[in-house]
Design a protein around this nucleic acid. Sequence first.
DNA 1: CCCCCCCC
Length: 490
Amino acid sequence: MQQSGMQRQAPSPMKPERGTPSRAPSGIIDIAGLSPYNGKRWMIKGRIVTKSDVRTFNSARGPGQLFKIDITDGPGSEIAATFFGGAVDQFYDFLKLHQVYTFAGGSVKAGNPKWDRTPHVITFDQGANIQAAEDDSNIPGLAYQFKTVAQIMEGPKDITVDLRGLISDVRPCTQITMKDGRARPKRSLLIWDPSMGQAGSGHIEFTIWGPQAEKEDYPTEGPIFIKGARVGEFNNTKSLNSVGNTVVAYERPPAVEPAWVEEILAAWNNAGKPAPPRGASARSATIQELHNENMRLSSPMENGGGGFDPNSGPTALRHALVGTVTTVYTERPPYYPACSQMVDDGKGKQRACNKKLSDEGVDCWRCASGHTCQRPQYRYLLRARLADHTGMVEVSSFDEAGRLLFGCEANDLAALWDDENRNEELQQVLKRPYWKRCNFSVRSQKEVWQDEERVKVSVTDIASENMVRDGKKKLSEILTALSEGSAGGA
DNA sequence: CCCCCCCC
């Protein structure tokens, strides 16, 4: 994804004769006039508004490489172009984002709305003829076809859309493990616009994937302008994702009239600055909210373990919360010896068995599945207490969360635990999690333990807390509360 | 000729 806080300012006069092939002696035609019928006998002049990295791929014909650009020659007049093979080496460095070129020698074909946001696309190979052109103030930067939150919610998924709105929340960056095992950073923003009126919340989740998600230097409120986000769906709600050529701007692009910013800020105030709904990836919960919402959880054995009761609550709930670690229970080791035998996960992939190993003598450990090994790998399994200003909660944490809390592998902690001569060092490490203030992602489930129902809360992810961001947000909440208090004339 | 675009 590309980030563009400042956009090239272009004067407003429209290009004359929009949408009609130009008869200028140069032979340049408008992008709008391009179609497969042009064959290769055409030339366009346009500004590069997005440019991807080079990607390599393997196809039936062997390995290949490509990169993509989006070209515009006028408001709403845009086309995507892909460079393959030798054209990548020829043009990747030559073509610069925001600059104007003439393009010829490519072939035009119909775009596929599933992944192209323009009606036609161009492919270039070594036959491409591309020349740098003088900057042309008639050619603006990115053009947007904004949809509202309501339109996106009611429209189809798997299309790309543009959206403008106000940032209503910024979730911390977390590392997501993909189905193929790779880790990928992600950060969700919540974006509000007034289009849902009173009917709905008006907030939509926009997830930034990849290295951009790790950046911390962007606003946590105010306007946002998104070009080319992909519509997804989860839990019957539409959401947006950044993809390769998604462009995010936090400053009003020239194509957007200044009055729009004033209007949406006014609408936001009129609507009472609506907070995003609580939900899987929405606003952080307080610990009190966590407990309250967990009361809806249904028991695992309800209905005798079978049948679906529409009146029963969800079997699991996810929350994000900001908490401080006040206790880690270390009467017993906060780790266990885990079986590292690879097993089938039932979905065609391999994963570690991770069952607890018991010591069966010299260099022999065995797990409940009967796997044996000489030496166990230790994994964290710990209970901790988290607190915020509304209460406290006891949570279980597994290996990944344990590594973040203790700052070392469970194997390292186990080595300290078992070494009488390193007790002081051990005590130091055991203290490390204390008073850490983090963003916790937790999953709650009701379970029956010794004939008693209880809610078990497990940590699924930990991200460090951004103190500056958190402080600014709290300050702004305080100021809002104060101004509401005085406006109320109390 | 890519076309994967992600997680719950």
